[in-house]
Design a protein around this nucleic acid. Structure first.
Lengths: 224, 224
DNA sequence: AGCTAACTTGAGGTGACCCTCAATTTAGCG
DNA sequence: CGCTAAATTGAGGGTCACCTCAAGTTAGCT
């Protein structure tokens, strides 16, 4: 019949229930992507989220889904019931991770000196990225940026931009520094951190980078 | 004999004299890791090397071996005859790639100003890494550093160290700069370059890094 | 030419991961 | 309770890459 190429993953739900009346809330016919209606399902969902969070952080975002299911104590089928795609799992897990960076931002904001604030934000950021592989890959790999993850990142960038603005205003950050410089550098060092044996290496690297961005003098702009 | 490890890429591999007497060392019962004794086998080996070089450069070092065999016009079995492991292929292909960097080093050496030489070396290096994925991953991934590849890298580092020495002597490179800083930074930016849409991003990144390393004044050390 | 060791071949076994779905279990309502 | 829709299960089919090896082909010596 229509079996042209493969079973056809996109095709899906021809049979369905053929709803007689309205069946209003069952928007998605198959694939229970909606929220569970039963207590045990909710529990499983929570266990899966916990497991995904843990496994992603430890083994990276390409970790086998089977491992997540195993850690959650459910079958792989249940995982797919709740999260039909890997991306759905990312969406459910990563934004919260990304939000952890807000703490770092907040702490940096409290710092009175604008340059110190900016520098300590980056140091704190990489301190976290060195330990949290999920977060590291989220910031380093642009390919997996789903909408909700990207939103969380953008949220974080707002803080950074404020820090950048302040430091520029104080005259201690080079005026030609751009936001895109940060979104280039962060993935770079993120990648590298993952394979570095000691934290000393990336700290020194970051140090040079910061020195390159720093204007030591301060407000007394043009030196004659 | 000395043929303990590999065919030895360092020696010019042309069969040349075909050792008369002592040929028997068919030590390895299976797996023809030794050099071929027949013309067609030599030809196939060459075709495989060309194919590997091309495929690695284009698709990275994790490219499927089957693709290399296909491009070489041989069967996968033949590939395994000549190169029993992926590592054997790396050993046969990568050192030559790494040696390309010597040109960049040589050009930089010719530059009279020590700082400019150092900076232009790094720029030239990343220019190449932005286009040659095999070389990029070779420098970025420490896990695949076999002995012969590491040797080729070390060779290249000799040049860089000379450039570093000169620039430090000229007083235009920070004296606290270490070799390990380079071996941390190069993988970092290498990784990042691969996913960057435009070369502008990494150039700016590198620029900041270099600015952080630069001592603008020069010989007149302490400024009063 | 004839012969043999060297070489090539490619189907097929292995394993990792993906995703599906018919059969089964179970929560929770009346 | 008993019933039904919601959820769970896990074997199984699909893909992709790895690697092997028995059988066939061929270079090159004599």
């Amino acid at each position: 019949m229509e079996s042209v190429t493969t079973p056809g993953p996109a095709a899906g739900e021809p049979t369905a229930a053929t709803p007689p009346a309205v069946t209003p809330p069952a928007a998605t016919p198959r694939a229970a992507a909606s929220r569970p209606r039963r207590a045990d399902a909710s529990r499983n969902r929570a266990k899966l989220l916990e497991a995904a969070d843990h496994v992603f952080a430890e083994h990276g975002l390409d970790a086998p889904l089977e491992e997540i299911a195993r850690r959650a104590g459910t079958s792989i089928g249940t995982l797919y019931n709740h999260f039909p795609t890997r991306t759905a799992l990312y969406d459910a897990v990563l934004p919260a991770r990304v939000s952890r960076l807000d703490q770092i931002g907040a702490r940096a904001m409290a710092e009175p000196d604008a340059w110190t604030a900016f520098a300590s934000y980056l140091t704190g950021l990489f301190d976290v990225l060195a330990q949290d592989r999920a977060l590291n890959e989220t910031l380093a790999r642009s390919d997996l940026l789903t909408e909700s993850v990207a939103a969380a990142c953008k949220e974080g960038l707002v803080q950074v931009e404020e820090l950048v603005r302040r430091a520029k205003a104080a005259g201690t950050l080079r005026p030609d520094f751009e936001r895109s410089d940060l979104t280039a550098f962060i993935p770079a060092l993120s990648h590298a951190i993952r394979e570095m044996p000691t934290s000393d290496a990336w700290r020194r690297c970051l140090g040079y980078f910061l020195d390159g961005l720093h204007v030591p003098g301060g407000p007394q702009a043009g030196r004659p």
